[in-house]
Amino acid sequence: MGTVLSQAVSGGQADLDVVAARRRRARLRAVLVVIVLLAAFSVWAVIDGGAQLYLQRFFDGITNGLLYGLAALSLVIVFKATGIINFAQGPMAMLGCYLALTVLEMWPMPVLLAIVIAMVVSGLGGAVLERVLIRPFDPDNHMAIIIVTLALFLGFNALAALVWGFRPLSFPSPFPQGTADAIEIAGARLSYQAIGTALLVVGAVVVLELVLNRTRLGLSFRCVANDVANSRLLGIDIGRTVQFSWALAAAVGTLGACLIAPSTYVDPGFMNKILVYAFAAATLGGLDSIRGALAGGLLTGLSVSLVTGYLPGVGSELGLVVGFAMIIAVLQFKPAGLFGNRAMERV
């Protein structure tokens, strides 16, 4: 059976291929525009301030960008499964970071181990949160759920202030952090801390891809992300899959916060600024794409580092403005982001 079919069905294939090719070209064009913009800015920057300064800014941008990408990933994971942006993701990651600090204080252990423990606990916490506060709501009522996440945003900030106070705490780096712990490339400093962080982020993304592509829960997640109604007909328990996405996002978010914390400090609001960059990264990458989130993070990190480092009048405290400007620009000119599919499908 199926032989006539095999020969006859190729009729509509040509059209589909054309659509796919057009989509690929549009994507390539958008990525090219961004790269050309960055390259042009870089050329001006090198001429203006010299190669060494530029390289330093570039390294800073890439390191920060990977962390923004990781934070964006935690937004993307929940968005893919539910179509909802979890505004509480920043404070959730902040709580995870405090948790790691507390664990370190109570039992002396390697920093990395404390981070892993905090990730596991936040994962469980994310799962409980989904079950208790998110699942009771109609999943199609996005507004209600988003308001719940906004309430959690405020609640978690207050909770952290209550438990740990407002005093900024320092977070130990899992990597050597002295002034000598760095390699020099053409006069620019690339610290072991930055290299180690970058390797951890890449490792985390590889593990995440393996979980999503090689496990049963990962397959369920990809089905639900694609089509909830049809996933139900596959026998997939939608609630449990969404719960899995919350747990995964919470663990990824905590890792991100713990890797960001050594270069900032920990206080109840410390992830809120990062959340803006994560939003910029996620919208740029296209909210529903994992690789897009990472690429978006790199582009956001680079842009913020270069713009605040070179444009007179835009000091480092105006980095947030750059983040917001990027969000607005993406939503204005390319709502689907560089790698996303959702908005493009509607066209």
């Binding site: 397959l219 990809r222 992300a225 089509d227 996933s231 026998g235 997939i236 599919n341």
Partner: peptide, 19 residues
């Protein structure tokens, strides 16, 4: 049809047996 458009053909078949 109810196929999952973003997933590969093979993943669709695997998804059919996910339970």
């Amino acid at each position: 049809r109810g196929t999952l458009g973003d997933l590969s053909v093979e993943d669709n078949l695997l998804a059919g047996a996910v339970t």
